[in-house]
Design a protein around this nucleic acid. Sequence first.
RNA 1: GCGCCCAUAGCUCAGCUGGAUAGAGCGUCUGGCUACGAACCAGAAGGUCGGGUGUUCGAAUCACUCUGGGCGCACCA
Length: 659
Amino acid sequence: MFQDIEEKLAAAVESQLRAQYNIQLKVTLEQPKQSSFGELAIPVAFQLARELKRAPKQVAQELAAGLKAIDGIASFEIAGNGYINVRLERATYAASLLRNGAGSGQPVSGLKTIVEHTNINPNKAAHIGHLRNAVLGDTFVRMLRKRGRNVEVQNYIDNTGVQVADVVVGFHYLEGKAIDEVQRLIADSAIRFDYVCWDLYAKISAHYKANPDTLNWRAETLHAIEAGQGEIAELAHIVADAIVRAHLQTMYRLGIEYDVLPRESEILHLHFWATAFELLKRRRAIYLEEQGKNKGCWVMPASAFRDQTSSAATEDEAEEDSKVIVRSNGTVTYVGKDIAYQLWKFGLLGQDFYYRKWSSYPDGREVWVTTDRPATQSSPHFGGGAKVFNVIDSRQSYLQDVVVAGLRALGFDEQAEASIHFSYEMVALSPRTCLEMGIELSEEDRRRPYVEVSGRKGLGVKADDLIDKLIDTALAEVEDRHPEASSEDRRRVAEQIAVGALRYFMLKFTRNSVIAFDFHEALSFEGDTGPYVQYAAVRAANIFRKYTERGGIIPDFEAVLTPELLRRCFESEDLWQLLLLASKSDSAIERAISAGEPAHVAKYAFQLAQSFNNFYHETSVIAEQNPDRRNALLWLTNYVRERLLATLSVLGIEQPPYM
RNA sequence: GCGCCCAUAGCUCAGCUGGAUAGAGCGUCUGGCUACGAACCAGAAGGUCGGGUGUUCGAAUCACUCUGGGCGCACCA
């Protein structure tokens, strides 16, 4: 809603600039420093002043005088040394919000955007680092979908890599377990298979370290997996599938769903790489190295993915920096497979996977998984996106650069531009949390600001443990506050609060700040947290519940709220500011999309909740004696509630029935 | 050695792509529950935006540099 006014105003100023000064300029609008200055500020006079070589204030005055009246805008004022501040017609604005209702998102349209996230190695339980990835990705997807983008969610499964192989080594060589024994572990509901693998992975990693000679187990296992035949390959499949199921379950606890699970095994078996390899060779994007340490490998020259400015001093150095794509033994590296996969995402590979349905979510969404056998079911069409966001932590930016360079070297410049590494910093552990968890720290680590999670060492906070702990903490509080509710009911509310707290916690930090995970902070439900926002929504809902319980009738707002009534109501600065902020929800989401920053949505939700809580405290709605004013307050409450709920749903957070 | 990221209140972080007097939350101190339930609200204290130089009407924001931290730079993924 707010965007409409912004667009109208910017367009009016731009045409005025053309008419008055014959200048073509893109006008940007700002929020005034203080709300008392008005609703919008135009700083364009500063830019103009330079070109016209005149004082900004004078230019602003001239420009403002020339601006014609715009519907919905009350006044232009000159302030500071050259701002043009804009005031809206409050009643007109409120009336348009009243007419248009809250709006219900945008219809889906346009070219496909692919968002790839989660991508956890299917060899152990998910941890908090994976949660950041999944919550960021999922929220970004929700933002895009809310604004009408056509989005496909992919969760890449590396089921043939070293990490899976290591757990298989653990079962097969270290513990001597046969397939049926492992299957019994998976089927046993009393144990968490992904937790078993978590420990086993740490165990085998330690074993390698103590007995380097046993590393040949890994090589043999990898070989068997790649060949895709025999007991070891079968075991790998069984383990990976079971872990993927566990991961999807963990993520579903947070409301995270996927459309398709592309697997590395299919990239291998359907020979995606062979196709990509031919392309790369034909376009001379890679070449066969004939000397140096990379002799016998197919490599991509460093010049393809490094800045030209930082070119190596000598050719030898350039060779050192080039990236091996195919090893001297003929096997392809991870990056090579990733180039093939990225090509497929854009529909550039010229071949496709087969698919079978993996499962369905309660809301009806289906997840499909790739297979190497012709399908028996007809599936949706996957891949072929126009834009691709890869949610991958920033430590892999070098590899992402190589993938993009691969596209560019093949002449797919447009797709290279449309390949976005949606990067984020890692989640580490605060030293305090390490101590709480009984993790021993060296003197050096203790002084660090944070300690890195390590799957190999089994060092980290498991996602499900954290969720369980959050639920327990919330449940204790809910039981205390609502002894009258049934225990299943309280459990459900505690779960909603836990998810709200966790998702918000993962989103409140901007992407490039390292999260030093701290239990004390993550388990907090006060202040800048998800439950704070949920609480505001619950309070708004309570007003309506209490009002109708006491026999109040909710009027037809459009019929009873006259322009005069709206004008009087929003003469109050506080009420007006609340309405205004609520009306900015879509524009907040749109801005967050262009900034690629889900944290902005979380911040907005918090501000709106804060503003509403203030209103809630200051203004009595139900007890308001004047029926006209009461109706206006009820409408305002309802409007804010709808915007708050819409924003929460973009964050993947629900409003509990009570708190 | 090369590349990327970070440094803002005691702590954890925002700061809308260069704009007006730098903001939140936590913590500390003070005050507010007859209920639209205080997981809340109000107020106070707290800052040389790591240091320096530059760019211009204007810098937390851009450039350069220094300091201190983090992460990458495999024929692992």
